[in-house]
Design a protein around this nucleic acid. Structure first.
Length: 692
DNA sequence: AGAATAATGAGGATACCG
DNA sequence: CGGTATCCTCATTATTCT
């Protein structure tokens, strides 16, 4: 019942029906990996000890009345949800130096005072969570104020009734037994279609209230709309709140982590199996990660030996996700929503091949503006593409192997909402075979190496030792080498993309040869202080220009005056180069790229090609929040195209150590793509309707 | 000389296909 | 069930920089 997709074309044309309609998974209420509240209590304080989340900071500043030395620290803790008096008292007692100690004490106090706090305080507490005052008063009267758990349960049940009753008749919904969470989860996790869900849980009369509710909780209005549009996040938050209340704390800090888009994934992946335990697991992991961020300011980087702080940003997830992965593996065995890769891998069609598809029906939510284009490796672990598609408005991925465009294979999936008729390729055609690409090597090519295409260009090259070993093995045999040797050599050549450069001599490709194969201008990545290793790495992570340009070509007619481009994970500028080579003028380009070498490459290409538009580079996708986007969009009136190929290193088979799927610390940045795309859509639609 | 940076070599696992 | 492909990471060593 769940996870049924609507990829019309795929279903009709390519998919052998695999929708066997498995039974609904049963609920998993076991507590095999119980959340340890102790752990939580330890981890969270350290995280809270330093100002970290924007929201926390923001609220602290907003409410800050003076600049006395400890007003800030008081505000800090007040921002976490503690009362001002209590914070002041504790700071008086313990001094303001040791924030860990302060927090611990605060927690002790609040744990002991919460249950017997004054009636009005208790009511405020729940009203602060978004319940209406009347409802809270009523429920507190019914339940007595001693048992906050049952108050919350009842509140949740009531509010669920309030929103679902008009549409859905649930005979059990009247009682507030312990399985209420189950029914709630069933309701909100019915993700068959978001629009349907939306109808059920947010009838139009409720919408404004919910939006208000979310904005009150610290969401920007745009984010709140996204959340509501997506899956009725309100329920999710309620459920998380149960846990937070149990732990005895409720603060913006927590909400911050709930806002993490990965939570969507957590819930959606688990579907009806989502348990409180899993959700709380998730939050806990998020807290740990956040705690790490807060604990170690940017100056000292204990986890990374020098480079990205992205690494530690996500390390807290590892614990959880490893656990979760095991569970998922079990479940996915029965799951049959696996994306089948097309064979031949030509997507909706490639130049010079028959079987083109020129028409498809996109889900309404997917329609632009803006156009979007997302790319990643085709051969990702099971379920990854299903998730990606689900997050990108259920658009069917287009799987294309670049071997139909150039002399090297590159199997990639692209999710986009571009038109697909009247595509045209870049001219001149690049070399399509190894011999065309490297004519000088032809005379060294042995007859038994029958390759005509290279394999995927990767980020690493074969070692000198390997090519030496191959040379020796070949020299040892007179004339035609033994079949065993041939097989070994061929295997290594395929694995490492070796080419023949002399008698018995194979070699890895040079960086400029890779540039040529990928469709970049020669020396695109050369010079400017970039090491050879980095060149290989950047190139190996890049788009194949001819392939991407073929997909982008449909934009040429639509944007004769030029295009505004938001390029996420832009790397060495594959999207920019592709558009440029198509002759589509680049008006305003915002490129987000973490690696400095890559930003330099793009910047120098930009200058060398005498671009007349403006290039804005941003270092980290995390910087690109609603405010920043709003400002950018206001400046030049919206993006026409949002492009991104998020990190694949946790998806690719080449990764021996951390092939963790979409949850991997780098590949999880996919969710930032979604977040940003959603924001862009919201802001642009918002501005349009305001103008009109 | 010692620290920072770059190059090197070794090293499975997953998933698909026939 | 073997054959095959995969935008790779880690520890160590070499090189460059200060």
């Amino acid at each position: 019942m769940l996870r049924s997709f609507s990829w019309p074309i795929l279903q009709v044309k390519r998919m052998v029906d695999n929708n066997s309609g498995g039974e609904a998974d049963n609920f998993d209420w076991d507590t095999e990996d119980d959340l340890e509240i102790d752990n939580y209590a330890i981890s969270a304080p350290s995280g809270l000890s330093t100002p970290c989340g924007e929201a926390v900071l923001g609220s602290a500043e907003a409410s800050s009345s003076g600049n006395s030395p400890n007003s800030k620290i008081i505000d800090h803790f007040v921002g976490m949800g503690f009362s001002r008096e209590m914070v002041a008292k504790v700071i008086e007692e313990k001094g303001e130096e040791n924030s860990d100690l302060i927090l611990e004490t605060l927690l002790e106090y609040s744990a002991s005072t919460l249950p017997c706090s004054s009636n009005s305080k208790l009511i405020d507490h729940f009203v602060g969570m978004g319940f209406s005052e009347e409802m809270v008063v009523k429920v507190v009267q019914e339940n007595g104020e001693g048992n906050t758990d049952s108050i919350l349960e009842t509140l949740l049940t009531y509010s669920a009734l309030e929103t679902t009753a008009p549409v859905q008749q649930n005979p059990d919904s009247g009682n507030c037994s312990s399985d209420y969470e189950g029914s709630l989860l069933n309701d909100f996790s019915d993700f068959d279609s978001f629009s349907e869900t939306e109808e059920i849980i947010s009838p139009s009369s409720e919408e404004g209230r919910k939006l208000l509710h979310l904005t009150k909780m610290g969401y920007s209005e745009a984010e709140a709309s996204v959340a509501m549009e997506r899956c009725g996040l309100c329920y999710l938050i309620h459920i998380c709140n149960i846990f937070l209340l149990m732990v005895g704390r409720m603060s913006k800090f927590h909400l911050d982590s709930i806002k993490d888009p990965r939570l969507f994934n957590c819930c959606i992946e688990n579907g009806p199996d989502s348990t409180i335990e899993e959700l709380t697991d998730f939050i806990c992991a998020a807290q740990i990660a956040k705690a790490a961020d807060a604990l170690f300011p940017l100056e000292d980087k204990p986890f990374s030996n020098g480079s990205s702080h992205k690494k530690r940003r996500n390390w807290g997830y590892d614990l959880l996700l490893r656990k979760k992965k095991l569970k998922l593996e079990k479940r996915f065995d029965e799951d049959d929503d696996v994306v089948h890769l097309p064979n031949p891998m030509i997507g909706f069609g490639v130049p010079n091949e028959p079987d083109k598809i020129t028409h498809r029906v996109l889900p309404e939510a997917a329609l632009g503006p803006p156009y979007f284009y997302y790319e990643n490796v085709a051969l990702a672990p099971k379920g990854v593409w299903t998730t990606i598609s689900r997050f990108l408005y259920d658009v069917e991925p287009e799987f294309v192997d670049s071997k139909f465009f150039c002399a090297a294979a590159r199997k990639r999936g692209y999710v986009h909402n571009l038109p697909i008729d009247n595509r045209f390729p870049l001219l001149p055609f690049p070399p399509r075979t190894i011999h065309e690409a490297f004519p000088l090597t032809r005379k060294w090519w042995p007859s038994w190496d029958t390759r005509t295409k290279l394999n995927c260009l990767q980020t690493c090259i074969a070692s000198a030792r390997l090519t030496d070993k191959i040379r020796k093995a070949l020299e040892d045999s007179d004339g035609e080498p033994l079949l065993g040797i041939q097989k070994f050599v061929l295997e290594q050549c395929r694995k490492w993309n070796l080419v023949w450069v002399g008698r018995n001599k194979v070699a890895p490709l040079e960086p400029d040869e890779v540039e040529m194969l990928l469709g970049f201008p020669r020396n695109h990545t050369r010079g400017g202080g970039i090491s050879r290793t980095d060149r290989y790495k950047s190139l190996g992570n890049s788009f194949q220009i001819d392939t991407v340009a073929y997909h982008f070509s449909v934009l040429k007619d639509k944007f004769p005056g030029g295009i505004n481009l938001l390029s996420l994970f832009s790397g060495i500028g594959g999207a920019e180069v592709a558009l440029h080579r198509l002759g589509i003028p680049l008006k305003n380009v915002v490129a987000v790229e973490i690696a400095e070498v890559n930003r330099n490459i793009l910047r120098s290409w930009w200058e060398q090609t005498n671009q007349r538009g403006t290039l804005t580079d941003i270092q980290d996708v995390q910087e690109l929040n609603g405010d920043r986007l709003e400002q950018l969009i206001k400046n030049f009136g919206g993006f026409d195209l949002v492009v991104g190929g998020s990190p694949c290193n946790n998806l690719t088979g080449s990764n021996r150590y951390h092939r963790d799927g979409l949850e991997g610390k780098d590949s999880a940045l996919f969710f930032d793509f979604c977040r940003i795309l959603d924001l862009v859509k919201c802001i642009m639609n918002g501005t349009k309707s305001m103008i009109v």
